[in-house]
């Protein structure tokens, strides 16, 4: 039960997440995104094992963003139709504004929770393999992504080395963001010089092992779609449909 979302086929999950997000975009009442958000949270609580501490940390910027949406819509919202439901500090808030503000806020919360659900329960390698097997992404793109993924820790290490070496040359930690952006050029040139070399080597190594970019018929570790994926997709769609219906009912 607690592994269900982790074991779900990544391509199916990806499609469901995309469909949910697109659907949400059509609802402007506050209830639909709120219900959907709560539904996602409930699914995540019951069907995944994730590090909730890290999750909270990652949600923090999104929550701040959501609060920002609430505030700006209430204060600067152009739509001022409807009845005034309250006022403070000279700002009058109408019921429409109130509803829109909360709708946007919950939408941000729902979208970010959904994205994190995907990110926290999906192994990137399986995701790419599944994209290639189920959604027929060309192997060149799929394995190219894989190589890039393997390079990430190497590049991170290299970036550290370059930073340290440059600090020795008297390049301090840039304080202003303007300086920082200008400073990335200095970091990027040595990084790119190395990356181009690495990319060519990796491409040669792959080709020397018979990689031609042709579609393959058999995989060592096939990623399947099984009944579990249909059930989970069904649950997702039910939550989505229920929150849409609930939102419309409660909104009236």
């Amino acid at each position: 039960m607690r592994r269900l979302l982790h074991d779900m086929n990544p391509s199916v999950k990806f499609i469901i997440v995309t469909v949910s997000m697109l659907t949400m975009a059509f609802f402007f009442n506050p209830w639909t995104p709120l219900l959907f958000w709560l539904g996602i949270l409930a699914m995540q609580l019951t069907m995944s094992r994730i590090n909730w501490k890290l999750w909270t940390l990652m949600m923090l910027p999104f929550t701040l963003g959501a609060a920002g949406y609430l505030w700006t819509t209430l204060v600067f919202g152009a739509d001022t139709g409807g009845e005034v439901v309250g006022s403070f500090a000279g700002i009058e808030v109408t019921d429409k504004q109130w509803a829109h503000a909360w709708s946007l806020t919950f939408r941000v919360m729902a979208f970010s929770t959904l994205s994190l659900l995907f990110a926290f329960t999906t192994n990137p390698v399986t995701f790419v393999m599944s994209l290639m097997q189920q959604l027929k992404i060309p192997p060149k793109i799929a394995y190219g992504t894989m190589v890039g993924y393997q390079f990430l820790p190497v590049l991170k290490d290299e970036l550290n080395q370059i930073r340290q070496a440059q600090r020795l040359r008297g390049i301090g930690r840039d304080r202003h963001w303007g300086q920082r952006i200008a400073g990335t050029r200095r970091l990027l040139i040595p990084m790119l010089a190395g990356a181009v070399r690495k990319a060519e080597r990796a491409a040669f190594a792959m080709e020397a092992r018979g990689f031609t970019g042709e579609r393959r018929k058999e995989f060592y570790q096939p990623v399947h779609i099984c009944s579990r994926d249909y059930v989970l997709a069904g649950i997702f769609l039910m939550v989505l449909a229920a929150s849409c219906a609930g939102g419309v009912l409660l909104g009236n």
Partner: peptide, 30 residues
């Protein structure tokens, strides 16, 4: 072929997957 740079001739995560990559390329039956 085996190349010189140990850091840039792999594209998969584990040894087993990497070996399977060669076999898949050569269309070896599963």
């Amino acid at each position: 072929t085996v190349f010189q740079d140990p850091d840039s001739q792999f594209c998969m995560t584990t040894v087993e997957e990497e070996l399977a990559f060669t076999l898949e390329n050569l269309r070896v039956p599963r």
